[in-house]
Write a protein that binds this DNA or RNA. Structure first.
Lengths: 352, 352
DNA sequence: ATGAAAGCGCTAACAA
DNA sequence: TTGTTAGCGCTTTCAT
């Protein structure tokens, strides 16, 4: 599907300011126009020292007439804060992260801060590289999300004295605040929900990693079964890629067992939706033959039919908390780092 | 204007770097450690003038030992490009835009550019404000997406000589390149698909706006009907909010007609999924009783059952094109702006 | 092949 | 209340 592409009408010399654009208006230009010194312009802007009403008025007008806008590079070179916070995510197309970013904006924007969202998905720029770049760009704070328990990438920020929040990390670390979901609790709650619906054989489709949220959720699952006096059977816990296809594959393996489970916990909603598809494709019923529960409450969880019961991680609220943590540390750098743990909510739909 | 960026009493304090973080390593530190001048360090880094192998070696080592990283603010103050491109989107939680951003990264990242994604959803920061802020931050290019045919917000960038691409705009404008979907063609193709399946009464659930993609898609729908010699009936075109709820509401209205349509075009996938839910909730069949087609091919379109037939806008590829356009103009600022029009693809699933 | 020094545009200490 | 001026850390002539 090649795009049809055509050159814009005419116009070799349509625009007089052919290339490059006009040279930018500087503070001296404003000062000259207003008939004052650059210091006065600077202070009229920052309000950091008294400026007579009449002078401020003149400066204001000059600024508008010239469309002046201070050069941020020069400002931050002088040590001014940039009023920006970097939000580093591993994959912008994973709907989880935009929600996180939105939550942060909920808090940052009213305070005059701009969130710069950086996605590290596209090589060759590594996450650490982005962190260092953001420090070099003088952001006032950094939120790093996505990989588990790896604070190495946050170190440059700590060293540079830039407030950092690690998202999804459990281990607090000197100088680093964390915001985390209680995944063990979530795994337990999901499993208990299934048990309470009368299912005794409960399976679990998880990822291939031994750490991070997927592993914690399995731990919660095991704990719930043990509390209920049910033997944990290894064959009921299958590992597959964390994706829709992985969910389908996992469900195929579970259904192929001699005694397949009546209910399955899936490590996230994509996996659950894939698993659901597999069940429905076989002419089986959800939740009649197999009940399903996922994690995250992505948009699609409410969109599929039957609606997917899921553990909601309130990601947006977590984003808000992360932003607040960063703001707090910007305001008070001496404050010790904090670890915030978020509980999850069961969102009951039709799949259980 | 942009003078005050902080809400009263909020924002970064003006106190000195009281705690946290060693002072940053500067180029002089590297020079001292390597026993050379800062000029040499600079050139060892930029390769802009020959440096003896031995000297470069020394400088390299000093840089590593000190973890030196050039201050970007100082660089861009000297007029250096920042190797960053701003991607401004209206709503980061709309899955359309992350795909766009990802497409841009596909192209930007291998060239060493970093995409800074800014979402304007959170008030009070307006889109224009973000554009100006990005210019002040000296990005090398800006991609603005989301609102229709409003190039006002792009003007500051044009004036500043910063390459801009407008996404989703049809009207080329002096100094501005555009990337657009052929929405009229898409509306026509969707409608023709339905007609070719034997449906004669085809409805349309659209948004409330008279401009932009939704309106264009309706125009294509009308054109297709006319080409087929079918009378366009106004009652078959209903306007509702562009959302899942809107889709359900629109479908209710269509089903309440004396002669309801056998097939319905929905202005996007959310609307279509809402409409689908309404049909299924009544015990009717999709596509047996009502065939449905949407636009955009969001993730959920493949996830729902029956799978939603939809017009795919290849958003990621459009992002790539937009990025390439920006890169081209960075490389050659005198080049006239271009307008790129993207055709759409029919993605056939089970809803038609 | 290497250095010294002049700014880039801004803020703030110091003067008036 | 306002102005003068010294840098912030870097790149880049212009010398050597």
């Amino acid at each position: 599907m090649a795009a049809r592409r055509f050159v814009d009408g005419e116009g070799p010399k349509d625009d007089p300011p052919a290339a490059g654009g006009k040279p930018r208006v500087r503070i001296v230009d404003v000062a000259a126009r207003a008939g004052v010194s650059i210091t006065t312009v600077s202070h009229a802007l920052s309000q950091r020292r008294p400026v007579s009403a009449r002078t401020r008025e003149k400066v204001q007008r000059a600024i508008e007439e010239l469309s002046y806008r201070p050069n941020e590079a020069a400002r931050s070179l002088r040590g001014q804060p940039t009023a920006t916070v970097a939000v580093i995510v591993p994959d912008i197309t994973n709907p989880f992260y935009p929600q996180l970013a939105r939550g942060m904006q909920d808090v940052l924007s009213p305070k005059g801060y701009q969130a710069l969202i950086c996605s590290s998905d596209a090589e060759p720029v590594s996450r650490r590289e982005i962190v260092e770049q953001m420090i070099a760009r003088r952001v006032d704070g950094i939120c790093i999300s996505g990989y588990y328990d790896d604070h190495a990438d946050a170190e440059p920020a700590v060293e540079a004295g830039v407030p950092v929040v690690l998202f999804g990390h459990r281990a607090p670390y000197p100088g680093i605040s964390t915001v985390t979901t209680d995944d063990v609790g979530a795994g337990r709650m999901a499993t208990e929900h299934l048990l309470s619906r009368g299912h005794e054989r409960v399976g679990f489709i998880t990822g291939r990693s031994d750490v991070g949220p997927p592993a914690d959720r399995v731990a919660g699952y095991r704990a719930a079964l043990e509390s209920a006096g049910i033997q944990v059977e290894d064959e009921l816990v299958v590992r597959e890629p964390v994706s829709r296809e992985g969910g389908a594959a996992g469900m195929r393996r579970l259904l192929a067992l001699d005694r397949p489970p009546q209910a399955v916990v899936c490590t996230n909603d994509f996996v659950a939706i894939g698993a659901m598809g597999e069940v429905l494709d076989r002419g089986l019923d959800v939740p009649g033959d197999v009940a399903l529960i996922g994690f995250d409450d992505i948009d699609a969880a409410a969109l599929v039919r039957p609606g997917l019961t899921t553990m909601s991680v309130a990601i947006r609220r977590q984003g808000q908390a992360a932003a607040q943590l960063i703001l707090d540390r910007i305001a008070n750098p001496d404050q010790p780092p904090q670890a915030t743990l978020f509980a999850t909510d069961l969102v009951q739909r039709q799949s259980t």
